[in-house]
Simulated scan of single mutants.
Amino acid sequence: MPENNITWDEAFCGEGNSCFRLGTDAEGNGYISILGEEDRYLTDSRDALRNLIRDIKAGKADHLL
């Protein structure tokens, strides 16, 4: 994947070993990665990532964590 200037947030850790990091870049793209593997990430628009986080917090995607 191309090199980006990603600003990573603190890790979010669920039960067990499921630790994730969220990040953004200057162009408004959102990123999600497993803690410790920030060089391997998924990317999407900031709006798409924001909606995913809202759904997780609302309990709509508990199976992801």
Rank of each mutant, 00 (worst) to 15 (best):
N5Q: 11
L35F: 11
W8M: 15
H63P: 00
C13N: 03
D62L: 11
A11M: 04
A11E: 06
T24L: 02
A26N: 10
N51M: 12
E15D: 09
L22M: 05
D25V: 11
T43D: 04
E10N: 07
A26T: 05
N29I: 01
E15Y: 05
E27P: 03
E38S: 09
W8S: 13
G23L: 05
R40W: 10
C13K: 08
G59W: 01
R21I: 08
G59Q: 04
R21C: 11
A48S: 13
S33Y: 00
N4D: 02
D9T: 07
D25A: 12
F12M: 13
N4T: 00
D44W: 01
D39R: 13
G23W: 01
A26C: 05
S18P: 01
T43L: 07
T24N: 05
I6W: 03
N5M: 06
Y31V: 01
A26D: 11
E37N: 13
S18D: 10
D44G: 15
G30M: 11
W8G: 14
M1W: 01
Y31R: 03
I34W: 05
N5T: 09
C13Q: 06
S33E: 02
A61P: 00
G30Q: 10
E27F: 13
A48R: 11
W8R: 14
T43W: 04
L42Y: 10
L52R: 14
H63T: 02
A58F: 02
K60P: 02
Y31N: 05
E37I: 06
R40C: 13
D62C: 08
F20Q: 08
P2I: 09
R54P: 01
H63E: 06
L35S: 11
G16S: 10
R21T: 04
K57Y: 10
G14E: 14
R50W: 02
L22Q: 00
C13D: 05
I34M: 10
M1E: 08
S33F: 02
D47Y: 08
E38W: 01
H63S: 09
T43E: 05
S18C: 07
I6F: 06
L64N: 06
G23T: 04
L35C: 09
D47A: 15
E10T: 02
R46L: 15
I32F: 08
E10D: 06
R46F: 12
P2G: 06
Y41S: 03
